[in-house]
Design a protein around this nucleic acid. Structure first.
Lengths: 218, 218
DNA sequence: GGTTCGTAGATCCTATAGGATCTTTCCTGG
DNA sequence: CCAGGAAAGATCCTATAGGATCTACGAACC
């Protein structure tokens, strides 16, 4: 019999979750100054837990700290940083796909296939895109988890936080193609074909990179 | 004219550095409970900056937090975690060596060769081993930096913190071989041969893994 | 007009205090 | 002797207050 972990949470953790979401959903926009006291008043807590949450967010790179001058939300990726991120994604996520193909459990494989074939229901444009992005993130996380390497999963998760931030600013439209690519990856992993899984992931990421590159055209 | 960044530091940052060193040098041992108030008294600061430092260290995985019950220093790697770490090292550091071979600056190449040929001067056994470990960490960081990918370097740095923790507990003796392997890598990078650099790194890490494995024999 | 200086306001950082929770110890009952 | 429970102590977490630093604005000077 397994009971649900009863949650003994602290305010610091709650503030962290709230702030993290606020940054990712760009309620707090890149470059914005983060007023500790103001935020504390708004969340109806004291500055102490807010500081603790900010310290953690800084370690993840979502905010930057300037000593004695406060925190600011991390700016959007430069073109160089964007390229670096996709090189890292190629390195990490291709490995994740390869490993997942040989190590994933049966349950993970079937969940992966199910999620890859899911489509997003209607809603307004903005809402729909948010849901699509969430699904995409979830899928990549499933693969990272199925790789069986906690460290690999953690590294990928860190990257995706920044990717998410970028994506919210530059939505793109070709989601049907993305879905097809996802299904290719899922299928390869499902039939335990590491070579195909890695290749499918490489294709997917390479194309995704192209799709996102329009953000840097001026 | 470039002036040295004048340091406007906060107590939180100082405490962070001190605590991080304490964990890495196992002044604070794995599994130890971290008494916030006690630490604050010892460092002669208030608990507030100590909490901030601990929040950051937790994000890096050097300490663990149990809500309402304090922090503990992260335990040593299990055998599974150790294997996971070396799989990640193979993935990340081989890529770093490959990229460094094509992208490193001239200054980086020469520094790498210099450092790889350096030997550790005497001192007592413990001291000597600490110096050797530091040199090894520095060398791997040089390669990670020379890869030209800040994200890759950061990921590798995170891994090495845990590796360092493990190593301080299970020193091994075959340092001469290690030096040779380092020189092989440095030479390959110096002559801009990515294939050889990756291979040399792979050989080095595979053998290093074997050398460290004795820690798990009972 | 542009630059430098000085002041006022806002913000950050640290210390302290008290309520809430956990841990340990001791005691009681079986 | 062992299990269960209660109370005391230690520890954690949050709020508040005040000193220190930064930022912004306006005046004086070149």
């Amino acid at each position: 019999m397994t009971l649900p972990r009863l949650k003994r949470s602290t305010l610091g953790d709650d503030v962290y979750d709230t702030l993290r979401s606020a940054v990712l959903e760009h309620t707090l926009q890149p470059g914005d100054r983060v007023n500790i006291d103001g935020l504390a008043r708004e969340l109806e807590v004291s500055p102490t837990p807010v500081r603790e949450a900010l310290a953690r967010l800084e370690s993840e790179g979502l905010v930057r700290k300037r000593p004695l001058a406060g925190y600011t939300v991390s700016p959007l990726l430069t073109r160089a940083e964007f390229n670096d991120m996709f090189e890292m994604r190629l390195l990490l996520e291709c490995a994740a796909a390869r490993w997942a193909a040989t190590r994933a459990t049966a349950a993970q494989r079937s969940e992966l296939v199910t999620e890859a074939t899911r489509t997003i229901a209607g809603g307004d444009d903005r809402q729909w895109h948010a849901a699509f992005t969430a699904l995409d993130a979830h899928l990549h996380d499933l693969i990272a988890t199925a790789s069986g390497s906690p460290l690999l999963r953690d590294s990928i998760a860190r990257l995706h936080a920044h990717l998410h931030l970028h994506r919210r600013y530059f939505p793109y439209a070709q989601t049907a193609v993305t879905n097809d690519e996802h299904q290719d990856i899922a299928a390869a992993i499902e039939r335990a074909d590491p070579e195909a899984a890695e290749t499918a992931m490489r294709v997917h990421l390479t194309r995704a990179r192209e799709r996102h590159l329009v953000a840097f055209q001026e």
